[in-house]
Design a protein around this nucleic acid. Sequence first.
DNA 1: TTGTAGGCGTTATCAA
DNA 2: TTGATAACGCCTACAA
Lengths: 344, 344
Amino acid sequence: MAVQPQPGLPAAPTLLDVAAAAGVSQATASRVLNGSTRKVAVAYRDRVLAAAEELGYTANLSAQATARGTSSVIALLVADIADPYFGQIASGVARGADEVGLVVTIAITERDHDREVRLVRTLRGLRPHALILAASRGSDPAPGLLQELEAFSSAGGRVVALGPGAGEARAVTVDNHGGAVALGGALAGIGYRRAVVLAASLGVHSSDDRVAGFTEGFTAGGGEVLRVHHAGYNRESGHRAMRAALAFGLEPGTLVFGVSDMVAVGAMAALREADRAVGPDIAVAGFDDTPTGRDVSPPLTTVHIPLEELGYQATRAAVDHDWRHVAAGLELDVVLRASTPPLG
Amino acid sequence: MAVQPQPGLPAAPTLLDVAAAAGVSQATASRVLNGSTRKVAVAYRDRVLAAAEELGYTANLSAQATARGTSSVIALLVADIADPYFGQIASGVARGADEVGLVVTIAITERDHDREVRLVRTLRGLRPHALILAASRGSDPAPGLLQELEAFSSAGGRVVALGPGAGEARAVTVDNHGGAVALGGALAGIGYRRAVVLAASLGVHSSDDRVAGFTEGFTAGGGEVLRVHHAGYNRESGHRAMRAALAFGLEPGTLVFGVSDMVAVGAMAALREADRAVGPDIAVAGFDDTPTGRDVSPPLTTVHIPLEELGYQATRAAVDHDWRHVAAGLELDVVLRASTPPLG
DNA sequence: TTGTAGGCGTTATCAA
DNA sequence: TTGATAACGCCTACAA
């Protein structure tokens, strides 16, 4: 379905309109309103400003973009904007963009690879300053996607990937492995000895890193990982994986580590349905530190990720000319809460 | 801080490039790649398509927009994209936009009125098809904002407001009053007789409607609203308002109605801190049906709003030529959960 | 059916 | 400092 253009409506005032109203040339008007270094007589300047104000003039960014050959948009690709995880990232991206006078155009991949390729194609049409990919949680990109990104970056566009970036991309990463090591160590430190892990699919880098890190930290502290169940990254996956884990039988005092807070929350729901008390009976820990984790009860032990900051750093990576990956401000912290009470 | 244009990089292939590569005129290339009704010989058509594919050509949307006088973007203004309430709306907007081949540009007001005006000004520059305002929850708009909107709509742009819209705006609304009446009635029906209301600021329409509706339904069912505390719409406000309410003393069996789930969740936290059991002692109900409400414990009684659908309807309102407000699909449902157990 | 040419709103070069 | 004027990439009568 196509969109109908508005027929017969008065158009927005153009630069020529304000120039005429101010009695100056278009070039002069351009200089005072948009041009960089001001070199216009004060008298003219004021007249132009007044005329613009009067007419409610706003520069046509599309025209500016074609004339300048460079646009003022940053394109952001996320899997699901309703998910607070991506919401916080988007929030940081928007803040960073606003700081440099850029506008954020967003697209939702719904975790569909074909769709993602199609969207990148569309967004390329905007000739954005940069393309920020927060679409996956670090699984390997589709092949078609790489072509699009290559085309984009070889035409002067910048690609920023959240997570391990491929090829030309600047990558803003988070130390999933390290955070998980710390979490595993902390939980072993308060007495846990047996753990079950609920992970996303194999091959999703961030999940793999978290599983490996947790295992490392937990076993180093004297614990043992009994099993790893693979399902997905969301609440429903956690619920499903937890049911599978319960089918094996779970001794009291066992720890369940979900690779994301949503997975952990889903696991908690499944535990309640099975009449297992979260905390005293079965302990649960997550990863991400989503707001929800704070409000479930018992409150969820997790690893804090500064997601908003992550998004902000992504736009820095997008606009800074000389950029180097910063780890500062992106440190992860273990947050121990009541879902993992210290064990005797 | 300004953004540096990329120096000396190869530019993206232009329509002229593919025309040359295909050995046809620019016009022909335009017709097969972008023009509406196809009237191009198959042989030429294929050659153009092949050339475009070969070069990785994507139409420059900015240039298209200036040439056509109409852009392919929809602008969305939200208060806070990290808030799942707005996240879900944005999700629906994105879905609707995608259906009609439009792209969504988003801006965050942070609930700051001056900022909001500034952002509308910037977004106007994109000459978007429509401007969707989901920034407030229906408080009265700033005066400067109305001017901007007026300028935009009189230049042929469409304004869509979520909540009561002012002036030219098409409004997509939700029956806050009716939903709250139903909630109040249902809770009175299961035995509650005394209630305290935690509201946003006076003058915020949606909050006022919910308070009025709840009071109506609750008293009609034989209940009584003891007090209304005004604070805000988020978790922290709910926490604060709840503390204030507790200071008055609260008898067991009292119901607390927060005008949003977040307010209710904040209230639950404050109650726990005061060692009051949520449910058996003090009952809590919210409004919105945020995912979080399902995962707190006890699960939160609330009124379900189809937020994603709301966003979708907003883009329908934005693009449909002949549009009438639809209430279908936007019905609110009372969801009774364990935070309000039936009373004796 | 195809190509030529003028125009969309801005910017930027170059005389004046 | 100001103002013509040629781009920018694309669309679209109009003519061939």
